[in-house]
C-alpha cells in the first residue's frame, strides 16, 4: 500500500485576502491567496483548502473570484468550504474551479444536503467539515464559527454523515484552532475508527511531531495554517519530518 499521508495548507479567506485567527476570532491578514497557494504548492503541498469565512453575500461572490484565481495557477486539488447551503452553491464553487466542496453549518440544520451534493457531484467531491468542542464526555458539534453549540455528538454526526454521502471528513478541534498546542488525538482516533472515509486532522499544529501523531492516531491527512502563514516552517520541512518518522509522503 502506497497511498501517501497528505499535508494540506488551509487558507481562510475574507474579502479576497488570507486571514487567520485564534479559535476563529481576532482575524489578522496573512497574505494574497493566489500567492500563498502557489507558494505552498511549490513547497510540496498535497492539496489546498480554502475556507470562506466572510459570511456575507458580497463576501461569497468575492470568494468565487478567489477560487477562480487560485484554480488558474494551481495543479493540485482544491477543496473549498464556507457558507454552502445548497447543491447549487456547491455547483457554483465547482464551476469556479473547486474539486471538492465542504459543508458545515447548513448540513447540521439539514443533513439531507450532504446526500443531495453527493448524488449530484459524487461522494468524492463531498466533504463534511465538523468543528468539535471538547466536553465532559466526548465532543460536541459547534457551528457559526464556534459561537453556537448544537448538542450533536461529533462521532455520531460523522458516522451518520458518511452513510448519507460524505466522502471525506475535515475534522477541526475548535479548542485547538490557532493555539499551536497540537492536534486533539483522541478526537481523531474516535472519529477515524468509526468511518471508512479519510479524516483530515485540523486545529493545533505547531511542530512536525504533531503531524506525525495525527497520522498515527488515524488521520489520512493533516491540515496546517498558522505555522505556515507565520513563516515558521515550510510544507517541505514538515513532509521531511513525516518521512523520517517512517510515513509514506509524496516527495
Amino acid at each position: 500500500m502506497t497511498l501517501a499521508s497528505r499535508v494540506i495548507p488551509c487558507l481562510d479567506i475574507k474579502d479576497g485576502r488570507v486571514v487567520k485567527g485564534v479559535k476563529f476570532q481576532g482575524l489578522r491578514d496573512a497574505g494574497d491567496p493566489v500567492a500563498c497557494a502557489g507558494l505552498y504548492e511549490r513547497q510540496g503541498a498535497d492539496e489546498i483548502v480554502l475556507l470562506d469565512v466572510s459570511a456575507t453575500p458580497e463576501g461569497r461572490d468575492h470568494a468565487l473570484d478567489t477560487v477562480e484565481a487560485v484554480r488558474s495557477v494551481l495543479s493540485i486539488p482544491l477543496a473549498v468550504g464556507g457558507g454552502v447551503k445548497s447543491p447549487d452553491d456547491a455547483g457554483r464553487l465547482l464551476e469556479a474551479g473547486a474539486d471538492k466542496v465542504g459543508v458545515n453549518t447548513a448540513a447540521v440544520s439539514r443533513p439531507g444536503l450532504i446526500g443531495e451534493i453527493a448524488e449530484r457531484f459524487g461522494t468524492q467531491c463531498t466533504v463534511l467539515a465538523v468543528d468539535a468542542a471538547a466536553g465532559e464526555a466526548g465532543w460536541e458539534v459547534v457551528v457559526e464559527s464556534g459561537r453556537k453549540r448544537t448538542g450533536l455528538d461529533v462521532v455520531e454526526w460523522c458516522r451518520k454523515a458518511v452513510t448519507i454521502g460524505a466522502g471525506e471528513i475535515l475534522l477541526t478541534s475548535w479548542d485547538r484552532d490557532g493555539t499551536r498546542s497540537g492536534y486533539d488525538l483522541d478526537l481523531i482516533t474516535s472519529v477515524s475508527s468509526v468511518v471508512t472515509v479519510p479524516v483530515i486532522a485540523s486545529g493545533g499544529a505547531d511542530r512536525p511531531g504533531h503531524l506525525v501523531a495525527a497520522i498515527e492516531a488515524g488521520a489520512s491527512a493533516a491540515l496546517i495554517a498558522s505555522i505556515l502563514h507565520d513563516g515558521d516552517t515550510t510544507v517541505g520541512e514538515l513532509k521531511a519530518a513525516l518521512r523520517e518518522a517512517g510515513m509514506v509522503v509524496r516527495p
Binding site: L3, A4, R6, D46, E47, Q124, G167, T196, A221
Partner: peptide, 10 residues
C-alpha cells in the same frame, strides 16, 4: 480500506 481512495499514490 480507506474508501474513497483519496490522495496521492504511486
Amino acid at each position: 480500506l480507506t474508501v474513497p481512495q483519496m490522495g496521492w499514490n504511486r
